[in-house]
């Protein structure tokens, strides 16, 4: 299986985490999250989520809500569990065999780990954009049409054309590619590829878009475009974004969650977290003392 590598990656990140326990010591006092985990108009809510890779615990008792028309940024040092936590929201952790998720995560008040939840439908409603642009080795058109096709969202070619065009427009890519929709998506530049992946996620009209460090493989100009796009997308979708760049978190998000060693240390309005952090750990991280 292809998950071997992922499992190893998972393991190693947990390992580095446990090593850090010895050096930086979060202290038992940080068990409780500081700040308000509630969103104004929640779409997804996680309550007391624990994630284990085998015996090792990667996420400890995290609760967080993602609200409509807002961008929640998840920040924190490497191996703090923010990506793992993000992947709980569309059950991408299911693909990793040794990964076990406990707790309650709801999408519109429906338990996504419940028996009635079809993971295929869940992922259609909770889209995801990955760290490295991963367009399929198909044409630009086929990349965007992939989701609508497998879910049977369109009745005929005209509708599909329309969905493809709207999605590309929303992702801010239409003008650049409208004359070469039949060319391979892998031939685009890195930033264009990432916007293609966003268009691909939008095409199945999800409620939530999860972004796992979407700009870490891009240059500053492409990053700026994606950030503008995220801000634009906020009007229609709930967005959770994991990022290593604190400037990015400050620029695009309304709320910020700071993760440390598998725990959610602090949540709050982005401005407040960055200007007036309430915990020492958050302050140390934001001011660049570690991480």
């Amino acid at each position: 299986m292809k998950t071997d590598k992922l499992q190893q990656a998972g393991n190693s990140s947990v390992e580095t985490e446990s090593k850090k326990t010895k050096t930086t010591v979060p202290g038992p006092g940080s068990k409780r999250t500081v700040g308000n985990i509630k969103a104004a108009d929640p779409v997804m809510s996680a309550t007391d989520v624990n994630v284990y890779y085998g015996d090792k615990q990667a996420i400890r008792n995290i609760s967080l809500e993602i609200g409509k028309n807002e961008v929640v940024a998840m920040i924190g040092p490497s191996g703090c569990g923010k990506s793992t936590f993000l992947r709980c929201f569309n059950r991408m952790n299911d693909t990793i065999e040794i990964c076990r998720v406990e707790g309650d995560i709801r999408l519109d008040n429906e338990d996504i780990y419940g028996k009635d939840m079809d993971v295929v439908l869940l992922r259609a409603r909770v889209g995801m954009v990955f760290q490295k642009p991963n367009p399929f080795p198909k044409s630009i058109y086929e990349n965007v049409a992939y989701g609508p096709r497998i879910h049977g969202l369109t009745a005929n070619r005209t509708e599909l054309d329309e969905v493809v065009q709207t999605s590309l427009e929303k992702a801010g890519l239409w003008e650049e590619v409208k004359d070469r929709l039949d060319q391979p998506g892998t031939g685009l530049s890195g930033g264009q590829q990432q916007r293609l992946c966003i268009a691909r996620a939008i095409a199945v009209s999800p409620d939530v878009i999860l972004m796992d460090e979407p700009c870490s493989a891009l240059d500053p100009i492409a990053t700026a475009r994606i950030e503008d796009l995220i801000d634009e997308l906020r009007k229609n979708y709930a967005i959770a974004i994991v990022t290593h760049s604190m400037q990015q978190a400050a620029r695009v998000s309304q709320r910020t969650a700071y993760f440390h060693m598998g725990e959610l240390i602090e949540v709050g309005a982005t401005e407040q977290v960055f200007t007036n952090p309430r915990t020492k750990l958050t302050e140390d991280y934001i001011t660049g003392r570690f991480g």
């Binding site: 292809k2 569309n90 991408m92 295929v120 990955f130 991963n134 996620a201 199945v204």
Partner: peptide, 18 residues
């Protein structure tokens, strides 16, 4: 088949493909 990057599978699965 194994050398097809996992990211492609992830991308497809994340779109709700079986």
């Amino acid at each position: 088949i194994n050398s097809v990057p996992q990211s492609l599978r992830d991308g497809s699965l994340a779109l709700g493909a079986t």
